[in-house]
Every structure is written in C-alpha cells, then in structure tokens.
Simulated assay, not measured.
Amino acid sequence: MADTAEGFSSYVAARHAALTRTAFLLTGDHHAAEDLVQTALARTYLAWRRIHNQAALDSYVRRVMVNEHTLWWRRAWRRRETLTAELPDRPATDPRGDPGGSAEQDGDLWRLLRALPAHHRAAVVLRYFEDLSEAETAEILGCSIGTVKSRTHRALAALRAGLTPATTPEPAPARRDVR
C-alpha cells in the first residue's frame, strides 16, 4: 500500500500543473478545473493497481477528465447555475500561477474557444494544446479518427471565422501603363 501511495504521490507532484492546464482549457473556469483534476486523480488512485502501463498514465487521466467533464455538462443540475454579468475582482497577475492567465490575455481567442461546443473544444485542446496525435485524441474521446478530424476542422473554422474581421474586398487599384 505504501508503494502505491508513494508512486501515485510522485505522479501527482510531477503532473498536477499540466493536468490543471488541460482541465482549465476544457472547463474554462479555474475552480471547475481544480475540481475536475481532483475527481480524475481520485478515480485514477482507485484504479492505480490495475494500471500496468505506467507510460500511458497521462492518457488515462486525460480520458477520465474528458469523460467526467462530459458528464458535468450533461447533468441537469449544472444547467441551473446562472452566470453573472460582472466578474468578481481579482488581481491582474495571479501569485499562485493561474494556469489560464496567459489564455485570458488573448481575449478574443479565449472567448471563441469557450464558445465552442464541448466536444469540439476537447478535440482542439487535446490535438493542439496537449499535442496528441489524431489516434490518441480519438482514443481519449472514444470516437473515430475521422470524427476527431471533422470536429477539429469545424472548431478551427469557427475560431478562424471569429478572429478574421469581416471586411469587404477593396477594389483593385487602377493600372497605370508606364512606358
């Protein structure tokens, strides 16, 4: 039992920050990200003795986080929460090293990422933030590689459309014939 607790503790110490960043990108909220990581780590601890491939631990924990996050947004009681128009005061720089500090500074991109459907956001986060392959992302999300490709394509198209200002094409300048 001591070996199990020691191995799990060292894993958590090494990977907690990275898992929290991924959870933050999935949830869009620091507190929900912390809850998601804690839930995923609790489930991982319960399965720790059954996990034989220690190299696949990150994939296992990410899969638990994606599944748990999906359960959260499907639950009816989560829909009863109301958003407020004003955010509470908070410091410009978080002394704890808020994992979303730099993402929030990106303004429009962050707003667009949060507006994506959860399954599109999960695909983008796993593919581009976690730098996983299409096959690894498909395994974590429990879907086919083609589904990962289409979700990623649609999500990126939505992000590009939101970031690209709608401009009308300017007429081409008149050609001058210089001889």
Score class of each variant (00 low, 15 high):
24 F>C: 06
55 A>G: 05
13 A>P: 00
49 R>T: 10
16 H>S: 04
151 R>T: 05
163 L>Q: 05
150 S>N: 05
114 R>M: 13
45 Y>I: 02
74 R>M: 14
163 L>T: 07
133 S>E: 01
125 V>L: 01
128 Y>L: 06
76 A>C: 12
51 I>N: 02
15 R>T: 04
8 F>K: 14
149 K>N: 00
102 S>Y: 07
112 L>M: 03
174 A>M: 05
46 L>Q: 03
154 R>E: 01
1 M>T: 15
54 Q>C: 05
60 Y>P: 04
73 W>P: 00
115 A>K: 11
127 R>T: 06
123 A>L: 04
158 A>V: 10
152 T>C: 02
175 R>H: 09
42 A>T: 09
17 A>G: 03
3 D>Q: 15
76 A>V: 15
40 A>S: 09
31 H>C: 01
56 A>T: 11
135 A>G: 03
171 P>D: 03
120 H>W: 10
9 S>E: 06
38 Q>L: 09
4 T>C: 13
70 T>H: 14
78 R>F: 13
59 S>E: 11
84 T>D: 04
42 A>P: 00
16 H>L: 07
55 A>Q: 10
38 Q>A: 07
37 V>D: 00
49 R>M: 08
95 P>M: 07
53 N>W: 12
90 R>P: 00
20 T>D: 00
178 V>Q: 02
118 A>T: 10
28 G>W: 04
147 T>R: 13
176 R>L: 15
108 D>K: 15
113 L>H: 08
52 H>I: 12
171 P>M: 11
134 E>V: 15
58 D>F: 12
11 Y>E: 02
68 E>P: 04
115 A>Q: 10
161 A>Q: 09
158 A>S: 07
114 R>E: 00
152 T>H: 05
34 E>I: 13
71 L>N: 13
157 A>K: 14
122 A>Y: 03
172 A>M: 11
152 T>R: 13
71 L>W: 13
50 R>Y: 07
64 V>T: 14
105 Q>T: 14
90 R>D: 01
9 S>H: 09
100 G>K: 12
42 A>K: 07
93 T>Q: 02
106 D>F: 13
3 D>E: 14
13 A>F: 11
65 M>N: 12
11 Y>K: 06
146 G>T: 05
133 S>V: 08
94 D>K: 11
167 T>S: 07
111 R>G: 02
10 S>N: 06
29 D>I: 04
164 T>H: 10
122 A>I: 06
95 P>A: 08
81 E>C: 13
164 T>Q: 08
6 E>G: 14
157 A>L: 10
92 A>M: 13
178 V>N: 03
28 G>Q: 01
153 H>W: 08
85 A>M: 14
139 E>N: 03
133 S>D: 02
93 T>R: 07
43 R>N: 03
84 T>K: 15
173 P>L: 12
93 T>I: 13
96 R>L: 08
18 A>I: 09
63 R>A: 11
126 L>D: 00
141 L>K: 08
68 E>L: 15
103 A>E: 05
72 W>L: 12
132 L>Q: 05
